[in-house]
């Protein structure tokens, strides 16, 4: 297995996504990449929009779901197709919650309509987890509602 990557997992009605990497931040980035690739064919696109996203959760799983759903609502509101999200900070804060910041790159949706694949309604807690599967291998997964 490559040190980082992502894939989709079979689910009858919807779709499972799975991202892995050597840190929780990499696993979350890869899970986001899996979701964004479901939504559009992002290969070869050059980003023209940049923004940031900050999210928090009571544990890493909630942080994953908040992060993915934050990407969905921000993309919808701004009319943007996101190409990738790079986690710039992921830490456990002094009050015990988890927080992340990420830098996002995208392109205006109107410019790439022919690249759109399918609408993701939400990231769900179904099958959701973020855990260190093997030493140094973090896996983030969940089912997204299509």
């Amino acid at each position: 297995m490559l040190s980082r990557g992502h894939e989709t997992i079979d689910h009858t009605a919807d779709m499972g996504i799975r991202g892995w990497g050597s840190t929780p931040a990499e696993a979350l980035e890869e899970a986001a990449a899996a979701m964004l690739e479901l939504m559009a064919d992002v290969r070869g696109l050059v980003p023209s929009r940049r923004s940031t996203i900050s999210r928090a959760g009571s544990d890493l799983t909630e942080l994953l779901i908040e992060f993915l759903n934050g990407l969905l609502s921000d993309a919808d509101l701004s009319g943007t197709v996101y190409l990738r999200a790079a986690v710039t900070r992921l830490e456990k804060t002094s009050d015990g919650t988890w927080a992340l910041d990420a830098a996002i790159e995208g392109v205006p949706l109107d410019e790439v309509r022919e690249r759109l694949r399918i609408e993701v309604k939400a990231a769900t807690y179904c099958g959701a987890s973020v855990r260190e599967q093997d030493p140094g291998v973090w896996v983030a997964r969940c089912v997204v509602d299509l």
Binding site: I65, L72, S73, Y125
Partner: peptide, 17 residues
């Protein structure tokens, strides 16, 4: 549409807690 998706998204954490 998106309103329903976002209501679900917002309340899944509320109901989890």
């Amino acid at each position: 549409r998106a309103l329903g998706h976002q209501i679900g998204t917002d309340y899944q954490s509320v109901l989890r807690k």
